[in-house]
Design a protein around this nucleic acid. Sequence first.
DNA 1: TTGTAGGCGTTATCAT
DNA 2: ATGATAACGCCTACAA
Lengths: 341, 341
Amino acid sequence: MQGGGGIKTRPTAPTLEEVAREANVSRATVSRVVNGSPKVSPDVVTAVNAAIAKLNYVPNRAARSLASRTSGAIALIVPEDTTMFFGDPYFAAIVQGITRRLDESEFLLNLLVASTDPSHKTLRYLRSGVVDGALVISHHEGDDLQREAGLALPLVFGGRPSQAGDHIFVDVDNVEGGATGTSHLVDIGRRRIGTVSGPLDMPAGVDRLEGYRRAMDAAGMPSDAYEVADFTAAGAMEATRRLLDRFPDLDGLFVASDLMATGAFAAIAERGRSVPDDIAVVGFDDSPAALSGPMPLTTVHQPSEQMGFEMADLLLRHLAGDPDVPHRNIMPTHLVKRASA
Amino acid sequence: MQGGGGIKTRPTAPTLEEVAREANVSRATVSRVVNGSPKVSPDVVTAVNAAIAKLNYVPNRAARSLASRTSGAIALIVPEDTTMFFGDPYFAAIVQGITRRLDESEFLLNLLVASTDPSHKTLRYLRSGVVDGALVISHHEGDDLQREAGLALPLVFGGRPSQAGDHIFVDVDNVEGGATGTSHLVDIGRRRIGTVSGPLDMPAGVDRLEGYRRAMDAAGMPSDAYEVADFTAAGAMEATRRLLDRFPDLDGLFVASDLMATGAFAAIAERGRSVPDDIAVVGFDDSPAALSGPMPLTTVHQPSEQMGFEMADLLLRHLAGDPDVPHRNIMPTHLVKRASA
DNA sequence: TTGTAGGCGTTATCAT
DNA sequence: ATGATAACGCCTACAA
């Protein structure tokens, strides 16, 4: 017989036990080496590492997680659909920042783009112990992860959460940002200024609109020219059309995201009007979308990448037991002048 | 004393054990109910479910995984950096398809966008048992997940893997697709046709270029006007510049991805030439990028979303032990005529 | 510094 | 149909 041929024996992964045997030490010692315990004699460390290399050992994450009651992973929760998530470069920047922070740690990132049924499947997931904490971005008013089903998981929000509570979050001053963008339009002499806002169930939507209002008030101009959109280009195009219908004399437009600004551009072009001559446009984010349109977009910069980094950093510190992680983390914005306004 | 205040006792999650006690049955029975075993009397099922609901019980995934030796999760491996991954809507479509398939299953998806150090950290991850299988897209020649470190994990590729072997994959006929796109340029009377290809360490790059060659050969025209790019808009812009330098009389251009076509548009505009009058352009993918540029792009459609769905489906069937999942899955392409050619 | 032993929460194999 | 009782692979007091 030639070696029991026929049945395909899946080569079962080596365990701590086998490494211990190979190195002539106990499992505990191997475990210590694997976890970098300082109290192991150098020669034993060497021997164990040799055994690990020889057997090509990799710790079983489930076992480790079960015993240690930690998973070494965090989740990024995005309550939007895939299209939205991939469509806006803002998210790309956030993720970039998060992974940059995580890369210098041992933590893994689990992406959870959960538009459908956020309460049920997502919550089960979060409560099943697969992650030690979670980052939440693009948070809408409805979803109250924190309380729902008594979820006791460390959370850090990207953007001030709409519901009250002592949450840890990273954000910019959206009111101020909205005012900055709008004021610029005032400053360059526009007389009929409107805005396309984000959804009103998101603080970023509400606040940037409020910023528009304040700037208009301060300038003694009416703040009635606004339409609500959903942070997508298509939605913004629609909203801009409505705005142009209502205010044919519009000559300035503050759009609450760069991606939406591309939609606004399309609507404006469709009406045969030009940017910035007929209508000056200011966006928000300073994401790659600001440069992807027909013209470089003047926009309110927010440090998205750093915000992602910061979110991850705060969560990791929180998980590490750091008692004084700041809860309100407001990062600066500034106007970036380009061709559109 | 008021209830031991001071120490913040984290409410430890309920376990099978507690549910069993609550329902006056054994752990085994609860486990059966949780896993939908048919051999449990209806009233017991009811009682157990009541206890589960009351205690708000969610199975611990690590424990389950350890005992059952399966994780209920699969990974999507993308050997690119975050920017690239988020930048090309092609990936969005794939992910969309994958999640569509997964949503109708109990499996979770773990995204692994691993540009940096794909061999080490990623491999450890894959071998740690957190996933039962993996989907690999945007696969370059270097990364040989399969063999590397003896990884014995069920894999399904998006795009024919470059290394030999009996891999399961979903792909289109890129040679044919490339020929289709190029031939269209011939058909509409272009005389000096070039191409911007993908990287030559990826089959999709090589094959679409080969398709261009064949179409040119068949038309009796020279196939020397090609430049290699990297599937990014910026890279394609560069490549197109070089091409225009080398062939000032270029009047037709086949670009190996829609995203790259937007870069080509930019380069062409920069040179003061027009599309399609001066230069007709054909892309590949039929992704949203085809409609994001200054002009609707004529392109070779590939069913990206369905390909993602199919990949996930094949992997799940494979994991379920289905003995005859097809290994070579070639999906159809077709030309979509729009304004650019 | 190293080893022993018990336990983490489930599943799975036996009996019953 | 239900219940003991081992595993599963690792961590962690505790002991030596």
